[in-house]
């Protein structure tokens, strides 16, 4: 064994570390248990400190599991690397062997992602690696409606149309910016808010036609010629609107 030892230095260790001969025979025996045909490659310390095994999952796919053996193996557990979304905590004891690691390396995660690939329209990644636990799927047109139905909850609109903004533009009486398109409204049909309360701390916008209809519906309003005098429904400051012909 010692002759084939390439003696690669360990990480963070300036000089080539040597392992006892028993280490090599033990590791070789453990590889034997797993099967030499499943060993893809070996590097360092005579090709045994970093071993790559081939693992076949229940869907018949090949995965590569890289096992790095520490200097004090098997007292310390080896470190694992594989193309998986996460690695479960390795169950390890002094008497554990390589075959135990391979036994623990079981993943049903890929079948879930495979199912998504099969059933849904995955936009990207088009060729996902096994380690990828996220993907973008096409949602179709009715998605937000379905989501609202499932949640039994109306999803909030974008923040740009929040209440503060509405107050600036929308009529404080009918709550919309544009009046309905309606012949009965004459020139006002489809019109925007055209009256603003003069009280600077209110500045509420209205359609003059909405304000006029409101002032006409209450008894406290006074009329002088073609002007209605009343109060802003919000701040109660005096307001005056002209009665325009329909």
């Amino acid at each position: 064994m010692a002759e084939v030892d390439t003696g690669l230095p360990r990480e963070g260790n300036g000089e080539a570390a040597r392992r006892p001969a028993a280490f090599y025979s033990s590791v070789f025996a453990q590889i034997e248990e797993v099967g030499w045909d499943r060993l893809v490659s070996g590097k360092g310390d005579g090709g045994v400190s970093c071993l790559v095994f081939r693992v076949l999952d229940d869907q018949g796919r090949n995965h590569l599991l890289e096992i790095t053996l520490p200097m004090n193996y098997p007292a310390c557990p080896p470190s694992l690397m594989a193309d998986v979304p996460y690695l479960p905590q390795l169950q390890w004891s002094k008497s554990s062997r390589l075959k135990d690691i391979l036994c623990q390396f079981q993943e049903d995660y890929w079948s879930i992602m495979d199912e998504i690939d099969k059933v849904l329209w995955v936009v990207n990644p088009t060729k996902p690696a096994y380690a990828m636990s996220h993907c973008r799927i096409a949602l179709g047109n009715k998605f937000h409606e379905n989501l609202s139905t499932v949640l039994d909850f109306a999803l909030p609109p974008p923040p740009s149309v929040n209440i503060e903004d509405d107050k600036q533009i929308d009529c404080g009486i009918c709550y919309v910016k544009h009046l309905p398109i309606d012949d009965e409204l004459g020139d006002h049909s489809g019109g925007t808010t055209d009256y603003t309360c003069e009280n600077p701390s209110c500045s509420r916008s209205f359609h003059s036609i909405c304000l006029r209809d409101w002032l006409r519906s209450i008894t406290t309003t006074r009329q002088s010629f073609d002007v209605l005098f009343g109060n802003c429904p919000y701040c109660s400051e005096p307001v005056a609107v002209k009665i325009t012909d329909r």
Binding site: A154, I173, Y175, L179, P180
Partner: peptide
């Protein structure tokens, strides 16, 4: 009326939020 309808729909949406 159309105006009442629009306003109530907004009130309901606001209520649900």
């Amino acid at each position: 009326s159309k105006i009442a309808c629009n306003r109530l729909q907004k009130e309901l949406a606001e209520w649900q939020m």
